[in-house]
Amino acid sequence: MDDKQESRPPATRRITDVGTLKAFGHPLRLKLYGTLRVAGTATASQLATQVDEAVSLVSYHLRKLAEHGLIEEADAQSGDARERWWRTAQEALSFRHEDFKDTPEGAAVHASVIRSLIAHHREQYETYLDQQASWGEEWRRAADQSDFLARLNSAELSELNTEIHALIKTYEERGKAAEAAGDTEGRENVAVHLASFPFRNF
């Protein structure tokens, strides 16, 4: 790796075009993007092992993500010049219904990607449930699954989401700062899934 410090990707990218959202929404690409986000940097071979797919297939889908600027090449992490290292091109992605609602295709793609993400989150949580005995008592006590009910207007819901996101961000930055200072003991990847929406009847 070069002696110079590699620049950090921008914090958030908002996807507003159907082509990019469709490229991101492929099930394997969703999994690859999520795996790469956790890893920081990785090669196609490393990612193929993580997702249990052929390296050639993973390489193809990584190129498709790169074509849309969702991932980018990273500085080499080894002396093997043949290895191509990747990282996400942003720390987080967002895509809003209002950017896709004006065309049937856009609305359908947006809904499909959201459903795929929900399925991925469920799979991730169910994997934890299957493995929770191995995590130990402290982690089992710390983990949480809750739901809440509030009577809000749309402005209050938006304010609630903004405050929750800001709070989570402070913990993300705290963890990064601690690890940068060498405080890595006992730290694990932690997923926080949030869904807030209005409803009248189930």
Rank of each mutant, 00 (worst) to 15 (best):
95 F>N: 01
2 D>F: 03
121 H>M: 04
184 T>P: 01
142 A>N: 03
70 L>A: 06
110 H>S: 12
169 K>F: 06
118 I>H: 12
43 T>M: 10
197 F>R: 09
45 S>R: 14
123 E>V: 03
84 R>A: 04
7 S>A: 14
153 N>S: 04
4 K>Y: 02
193 H>L: 09
2 D>Y: 02
106 G>S: 09
90 Q>A: 14
63 R>S: 13
48 A>P: 06
95 F>I: 01
133 A>F: 03
118 I>N: 12
188 E>H: 13
152 L>R: 03
192 V>G: 02
202 F>L: 12
147 D>I: 00
155 A>M: 07
129 L>F: 00
46 Q>F: 05
9 P>K: 02
7 S>Y: 05
150 A>Q: 09
182 G>P: 01
20 T>Q: 07
83 E>A: 13
132 Q>F: 01
185 E>A: 15
119 A>N: 02
92 A>R: 14
61 H>W: 10
49 T>W: 09
198 P>K: 01
187 R>N: 01
13 R>Q: 12
89 A>K: 00
74 A>L: 06
107 A>K: 15
65 L>D: 01
122 R>F: 07
66 A>H: 08
52 D>W: 05
58 V>T: 11
52 D>L: 08
159 E>L: 12
143 A>S: 15
25 G>M: 07
163 E>H: 10
59 S>A: 15
65 L>N: 03
139 W>Q: 13
35 T>E: 13
185 E>L: 10
51 V>L: 08
34 G>E: 12
121 H>N: 13
41 T>E: 14
164 I>T: 07
34 G>C: 12
135 W>H: 11
94 S>D: 08
115 R>P: 01
105 E>D: 15
167 L>G: 05
185 E>P: 06
49 T>I: 08
21 L>G: 05
70 L>I: 11
31 K>I: 03
